[in-house]
Nucleic acid binder design. Structure first.
Length: 888
DNA sequence: GGGGGAAGGATTC
DNA sequence: TCACGGAATCCTTCCCCC
């Protein structure tokens, strides 16, 4: 097959994607066959080469599919598509804007030029900037050997043994860039920098003003070799002698010298003169040359700047015909956004020039996505952005590192942490926090995987990022087990930044949550706040336990490739084990930190983000309450009529500590040892945690409906498992108020319960409370009403009934129904029956009619009970994960 | 069918 | 002699959920 690039014709079987890309200034007329042969000899057999081969085969398959699709296109479809494309073309034509003067300026061989300027002897030699691994750019002498950017140094050395490779020095390039940008700003204060050496400018306004300028304002002193004529522009700026580094004395286009070459240079008022002046000033100030393109839009300007490179410029007049003439034979690869893959696909359709993109517009509209063919249509008409938008909002920040193979788990974690540290510092420098952490891994075969985790609150600290990244890494390590992960790159990215205005956690603080319970709870539940509710009686919108379920899900769900996700295969969890991490904050340390944050926020209504009245938002004195207040103990759920908050807190403490001593009418016979087993500091798997959450939900419902079983607690078994991060802590406490309209259980928490003066902080209390509820379930277990255990017994964690099915989908459905059933009954003030069993011998499709339909959010968050029941063995999916090298 | 999230790909410098 | 980057963005595809 004739490859898309001529080189493949002689180097049979050589990868087109690996062949020399000579789409760069200074690389015309090279002996591509010879160069490609050298590249092939150097690369063949390497892992990199093998991976490239795989990638190319994928592209070929993609093309094959596309051609098959093309073969099935009917004439009718083509006619319709043609009409559509023509209509759109006409619309675009009507909107064509030729009124702007857009300039794209690109420094010539920037890094190399800076190095040559600073080390003149390099001017005579082929040189490149970078390392033996990778080159960033090369000078024009090196380009004649086929040495170019993005080529590994060792291959470049094969092509040009005398090549001098200079290491990168960004500090220097940045300094030069600053000077150049100062000049850009004189022509367009809102110019758009693309990189250190490139920018787009809209000089329309400048030209307007320039028309009225006297010649003196367009006159610049010329710096000569002896330094004469050095004006303010260049004073102290030049680092070496001479007008120019003479990098491009054989430049095909010699820029017309400005008038009056001598001590001064005078420039005219037109666009070309203005741009020539700009380039002149750049050269004067930095002794480096720039090339520029002038056109009515950014797309064309970019192409133009390459037209007369180096040290040249090119302008397309602002006339439709001139634009169309320029586009006519322009190779598609010259256009920004069309890379080697797109080029190859289009070539397979017989498209190599921009005008052909227009001629085959109908076909393209049938084979490519809307975004793509719209883009192609724009190109074919020579259209592009005419307004330069400087929208500098960063969307992600990442750091990655390539290294010699690392197979040791410890080293991998260490490196991961190091990257998180670096990233955290960078994020904090820019004051950014994001909620999505993505881990990137490249194995020794150059296969790339990315795995992401979206948290429910934004993160920026090393610990927070690492907590998420480590979990993601652990999954991959576990998946590869018993074989080691053989990595050559690890990267960490944070994205999903929030605006500076709402950088606060996505979830509410416990204080605001409790405050808002009264005002928001009703709205969330779709039910009015009881009229007789005391002013400060807080009615959370839903039970903490169920929110804990949601939160645990939201924060711990580690997403897998949906295409390989085993979630679609029944019985497979998408949850992770939860390793204890050395040096990480304990649950209660995190909780204490959280409390401090909450207390800080307390006085700030903005931070609370709720709709409290000013009276409600007033922080309540911690040791007193109004006479009409009464509290309900969150442990025994009995109203306490004490006037004294201290007494109330003592009651709660007693309730909490007395659960094993008969306080709160509890039974003391339960066995802590057979409980949920979360009291130790050992690693705690997430599914186990989920179980405790599910158990909490159950216990809570029971508590409200007066079940005696719920009055049981086992003092030692409170929740004390380590948390992986602050996010987990927050979520573990389930403190997010979400819009679940299903839940109506009321837990009465006086403000001072959370502020506490009984020696426990808020989170300890709540955690203890949850632990208490969990423990209640332990007793159930002891009573023979078996709760689903880690052994994946098919016992509903809500109703505790053994489900007589092995169908996990069915079983999960049951759990959903069960959860909602309880909620519904509770909401209606009835009692909960745990006796229905939708799975016993009867396959029930869908939910019962009386079951409330969960909102999408709720439904998603309801998933943990499903996860609980899936086979822990399946934690390591057997299905291979998709990699970029592609087995999708 | 559409929206949104996740993972991977393409592209650029 | 061994040896193929780092960062950012947008697009595509797939899946889940409504």
């Amino acid at each position: 097959m004739e490859g898309p690039e001529g080189a493949t014709s002689s180097a049979e079987g050589f990868l087109s994607v690996m062949a020399l890309n000579d789409n760069k200034a200074g690389m015309e007329g090279l002996d591509r066959d010879k160069i490609n042969m050298i590249i092939l000899e150097t690369s063949k057999g390497s892992r990199f080469y093998e991976n490239e081969l795989k990638k190319e085969q994928q592209v070929d398959q993609r093309i094959e599919r596309m051609l098959q699709q093309k073969a099935h296109i009917t004439e009718q479809q083509m006619r319709m598509a043609q009409a559509q494309v023509e209509k759109m073309g006409a619309d675009l034509e009507r909107g064509r804007d030729l009124g702007r003067v857009i300039v794209h300026v690109d420094m010539d061989a920037f890094y190399a030029a800076v190095e040559m300027r600073d080390c003149p002897e390099l001017k005579e030699k082929p040189m490149a900037v970078g390392s033996m691994s990778m080159l960033s750019t090369s000078n024009y002498q090196a380009r004649r050997f086929g040495v170019r950017a993005a080529m590994p140094g060792f291959i470049a050395k094969k092509l040009c043994p005398s090549l001098v490779i200079v290491p990168l020095n960004f500090h220097k390039y940045r300094a030069v860039s600053v000077k150049v940008r100062e000049i850009f700003a004189d022509y367009d204060p809102n110019f758009l920098p693309v990189s250190l050496d490139e920018a787009y400018l809209d000089i329309s306004e400048h030209l307007e003003q320039r028309r009225g300028w006297p010649e003196s304002m367009r006159t610049h002193p010329v710096h000569t070799e002896s330094g004469e004529g050095k004006g303010t522009e260049s004073q102290g700026e030049l680092d070496s002698d001479g007008l120019s580094p003479i990098l491009f004395e054989d430049s095909p286009i010699f820029s017309p010298r400005p008038q009056g070459m001598g001590d001064i240079a005078v420039f005219g008022i037109c666009a070309e003169e203005a741009v020539r002046e700009m380039r002149f000033r750049i050269e004067q100030r930095t002794t480096l040359t720039a090339s520029a393109g002038i056109a009515p839009n950014m797309m064309l300007a970019k192409v133009c700047s390459d037209k007369n490179k180096p040290n040249g410029q090119y302008r397309i007049p602002a006339e439709r015909q001139a634009v169309m003439d320029f586009i006519q034979d322009l190779p598609i690869r010259k256009v920004q956004g069309i890379g080697k893959v797109t080029e190859k696909m289009l070539r397979a359709l017989g498209i190599t020039t921009c005008s052909q993109l227009g001629q085959k517009g109908a076909l393209l509209s049938l084979l490519f996505s809307e975004v793509s063919w719209h883009h192609f249509l724009h190109i074919s008409l020579g259209l592009g952005c005419t307004r330069i938008k400087r929208d500098g909002k960063r969307k992600s920040m990442s750091t990655e590192r390539t290294f010699a193979e690392i197979s040791s788990v410890e080293e991998q974690y260490d490196l991961c942490r190091e990257l998180c540290r670096d990233l955290s510092q960078d994020l904090q420098k820019e004051g950014l926090k994001g909620k999505t952490v993505t881990l990137k891994l490249k194995n020794v075969n150059f296969e790339v995987k990315t795995r992401g985790s979206t948290l429910s609150s934004v993160v920026s600290s090393e610990e927070e990022i690492f907590a998420a990244a480590k979990d993601l890494l652990k999954v991959e390590i576990d998946n590869a087990s018993p074989h080691p992960l053989r990595l050559r790159l690890i990267g960490v990215q944070v994205s999903g930044f929030v605006n500076s205005d709402d950088k606060k956690p996505l979830q509410k603080s416990i204080i605001s949550f409790l405050h808002s319970g009264r005002s928001q709870g009703a709205a969330l539940q779709g039910a009015p706040v009881p009229k007789d509710a005391p002013a400060n009686r807080v009615v959370p919108p839903k039970p903490l336990q169920l929110m804990a379920l949601e939160q645990a899900d939201a924060s711990h769900t580690v997403t897998q490739d949906p295409r390989t996700s085993l979630a679609k295969q029944e019985g497979v969890p998408r949850i992770l084990s939860w390793p204890k991490e050395e040096g990480q904050q304990s649950f209660f340390e995190k909780a204490r930190t959280l409390r401090l944050q909450q207390q800080t926020r307390q006085g700030d209504p903005q931070e609370r983000g709720d709709t409290l009245t000013s009276a409600q938002s007033e922080p309540q004195p911690s040791t007193s309450r109004r006479p009409e207040e009464f509290f309900t103990c969150p442990v025994c759920f009995q109203e306490q009529k004490s006037n004294d908050l201290g007494s109330f807190n003592r009651h709660v403490d007693e309730c909490l500590s007395g659960v094993s001593t008969g306080h709160c009418d509890t039974d003391t016979d339960g066995s802590p040892e057979t409980g949920t087993g979360v009291g130790d500091e050992e690693s705690c798997s997430l599914d186990r945690w989920m179980q405790t959450k599910a158990a909490s939900a159950l216990a809570e419902v029971d508590a409200r409906t007066g079940s005696k079983a719920c009055q049981k607690a086992l003092g030692k078994n409170s929740i004390k498992q380590p948390m992986a991060s602050g996010v987990h802590t927050l979520n573990g406490l389930g403190l997010k108020a979400t819009g679940n309209g299903n839940i109506g259980t009321h837990i009465h928490f006086p403000f001072d319960f959370v502020k506490g003066n009984s020696g426990k902080d808020t989170n300890e209390r709540v955690a203890d409370h949850l632990g208490h509820i969990i423990e209640n379930n332990t007793e159930r277990k002891a009573q023979g009403r078996m709760l689903g255990s880690t052994s994946c017994t098919m016992t509903c964690p809500v109703c505790n009934m053994q489900q007589d099915t092995s169908d996990l989908a069915l079983f999960n459905r049951h759990v959903d129904i069960c959860l909602n059933q309880g909620v519904l009954l509770e909401f209606g003030g009835g009692t909960v029956s745990h006796n229905f069993n939708v799975t016993s011998g009867t396959k029930v499709k869908g939910k019962p009619e009386n079951a409330p339909k969960p909102s999408s959010k709720n439904k998603r968050h309801m998933s943990p009970p499903h996860a609980i029941l899936r086979n822990p063995k399946s934690l390591a999916p057997e299905t291979p994960l998709r990699s970029s090298s592609g087995d999708a």
